[in-house]
Every structure is written in C-alpha cells, then in structure tokens.
Amino acid sequence: MKTNTPVIEINHLDYRYDYDFVLENIQLKVNKGDFLAIVGPNGSGKSTLLRLILGLLKKQDGQLLLFGEQIDTFTGWDKIGFVSQKANSFNTGFPATVYEVVRSGLTKKTGMFRFYPKDSKEKVLAALRSVDMEEYIDRNIGELSGGQQQRVFIARAIISNPEVLILDEPTVGVDIQRVEVFYQLLNRLNNERGMTIVIVTHDIGTITDKVSHIAFLNRSIHFYGTIEEMKRLDNEVMSFFYGHNMHLLTSNYEHGGARV
C-alpha cells in the first residue's frame, strides 16, 4: 500500500531547549502506508521529534504538516493514534478494566459532552481481537503483564481507526520472544489496513527486516530512505551516520536517558 500522499511532512524543523539545539534542520516526509522507524541513540531527539509531531510540544522554527495541514491549525487528532512508552505513562494501581481503557480511545472521536456510542462494546472487542487480547476485556489493567498492557494500549490507539499509528519505544519491557509477535501485529496493521506506522526505537537490530523506511536521527537526520537503500550503505558509512555511541545504546538505555 505505498502511495505518495504525504501524511507527515517536516521541513527545516529546529527545536531548542534554552539555547541548545535538540533538533536541527529536520527534513522528513512520511507517505501514507509507510512503515517508518526513527532510530537514534539516547538523547538524539527522538522523543522530542515525536512529541512535536503529536502536538505535545509547541513547534518553534520550521514547518510541520499533518495531512497537508499546518500543525498549529490541525484539528484531526483522531486520525493519529499514539502508543507511548508504557513504563511511565500510567499508574498501575488505577482501578480500570481493559474495556474502560480501550474504550477511552474513542473519546476524541465521540466529541465533548457526548456519551460513548452504543456500539462501543463491539468496537472495543474488535480492537482487542486484532491484538489477540479479547479474553482480557474485563480484567484490571494493572494485573496484566507489560507486553499485554502494551497490546491493550495499541487496541486503545487503533479503536478510533486512525490513519497513522505512532509508537514510542513500544518494545521496552516486553519479553524478547514477544517482540517478534508484536512486530507481526504492526505489520498486519500496516499491510491489511494500510495504516501508516511511525515507530521510534533505539534498537536497530530487530527492526530492519520489518519496516519499509528508516531514519537515523542524531539531532539531525543523518540518513533517511528505504530499507533497500540502507542496506546498500556499507557498515562503515552506517556507523558514521549513526554516531559513535552505537554500541553504548543498549547498556545506556536502562537509565532511561532518552527522554527529555
């Protein structure tokens, strides 16, 4: 499902915290149906870029278009589904069932001052079915394992049928053997529903055979292209693009330095 309809378009985007550039002259174009991985070491600005795209941070300089609209005036947020890093996104003692959590993904689509639609139960079931979590519908969210919670959050993101799904380090805290299943799920959403997927990760090893496009980010985009294009680069060039701390990534990650 590759098209040339741009879903996310970024031109000359800069972002500074005080006077330090976190992102510099970012150029990026994500077309409908793309499966893009943004890869970079800790502190490379991955999360910042993602938060800018999601409107969680206010854009400073440059251009950011979502579905062809300037982000400042963009209102179609229900077209974008977001799955954040599980670990720091919610309080595990929260009294809520999987059903309530997944249904809350319909909030924007339903609109203010309205009740959830009558068929929301079917919608929740359908969303849970696509992540193989149907039988957990009445369970308390805090009782589930990290991987199961992550799948529930994907169900919450896809219940409103978004055109783009954005995931921030989704496989952190998920068992290695589950990671494979997890990517199969994303590939299914990408292939069968034509959902555009943008995933941010520090883990270059597992994703190269799963995504269609890849971007190496370290303050600015050092490489952006299809997987075939990336494979044509030899290793030496790659490690140059990726920065010298490539082998430090996994050991550093434990300390959660990537968030800004």
Partner: peptide, 22 residues
C-alpha cells in the same frame, strides 16, 4: 457527567489525552 470521558482519559494517562488533542 458532561466531562466524564475526558476526565477519565486525562486521569488515566494525561499524555495520551493530550495526544488526542483534548
């Protein structure tokens, strides 16, 4: 009652609520 949905989303996961544009 009127803001129940939004209040739930923001209480459960504020960042998710903001990403929905609430």
């Amino acid at each position: 009652t009127a803001i129940y949905k939004e209040l739930f989303v923001l209480s459960f996961d504020e960042e998710h609520g903001q990403s929905l544009g609430l």
